[in-house]
């Protein structure tokens, strides 16, 4: 990772992201983290909290604190502990299993009811690699899932945890949707949840997207 050239003051924002859905979720997480820069080796399922940093543009760094509930979906009452205060959620389903989409939908409903009202939710279909190999394996059509996501104002991605395809991109899209300005600037971030800044801030208005 090369250091950004400091023409402006670097901006740094941190967000809590919760992973929900089928147990393959864990793999998505590991792919995401492993493929990139933070110190993390081939994961064990025991280590379920990770942080990941991505560079959104030349001077904007977004750090994700990733909360993985993989394998714990059956303990329903514990789920709110995970998604409370989350700024974003990645709800993963399996593109080759229609019923996994239904489960994802019920997570989304729960999130919309119970989580932060401004939570950014990304509906994410996994196993893109399988589907690309054999379109017949696909049980959830992209149109259907995307339409559902659009209707509810969610982001939609199709990724492959196995190959890592589209994963970084989806995290980046999530980062772009997050209220970075609010996080970076303490005055705008007054309603802060678990918000803080650890970097010198700037009020640069146009630097949000890339």
């Amino acid at each position: 990772m090369s250091a950004p050239i400091n023409t402006e003051e670097p901006r740094f924002a941190q967000f809590k992201l919760v992973l929900l859905g089928e147990s393959a979720v864990g793999k998505v997480l590991h792919r995401f983290v492993k493929d990139s820069f933070d110190d993390f080796r081939e994961s064990t399922i025991g280590a379920a909290f990770l942080t990941q940093t991505i560079l959104l543009d030349h001077n904007t760094t977004v750090k994700f604190e990733i909360w993985d509930t993989a394998g714990q979906e059956r303990y329903k009452s514990l789920a709110p502990m995970y998604y409370r205060n989350a700024n974003c959620a990645l709800v993963v389903f399996d593109l080759t299993k229609q019923e996994s989409l239904e489960k994802a939908k019920s997570w989304i409903k729960e999130l919309q009811r119970q989580a932060n009202s401004d939570i950014v939710i990304a509906l994410t279909g996994n196993k893109l690699d399988l589907v690309q190999e054999d379109e017949g394996a696909r049980e959830v059509s992209e149109d259907e899932a995307r339409a559902y996501a659009n209707e509810l104002g969610l982001l939609y991605f199709e990724v492959s945890a196995k190959t890592g395809q589209e994963i970084k991109e989806s995290f980046k899209s999530i980062a772009e949707k997050l209220p970075i300005e609010e996080k970076v600037n303490p005055r705008q971030g007054r309603r802060s949840r678990n918000v803080d800044l650890s970097r010198p801030n700037t009020n640069d208005q146009q630097a949000c997207g890339c």
Binding site: F49, E65, Y75, M81, N194, V195
Partner: peptide, 20 residues
């Protein structure tokens, strides 16, 4: 503000991981 909450939930998380 960033990590304490993650630390606090670890026991619960761990207990749920044992069966797996």
């Amino acid at each position: 503000s960033y990590e304490l909450q993650s630390f606090l939930i670890k026991p619960v998380q761990r207990l749920c991981k044992y069966p797996l």
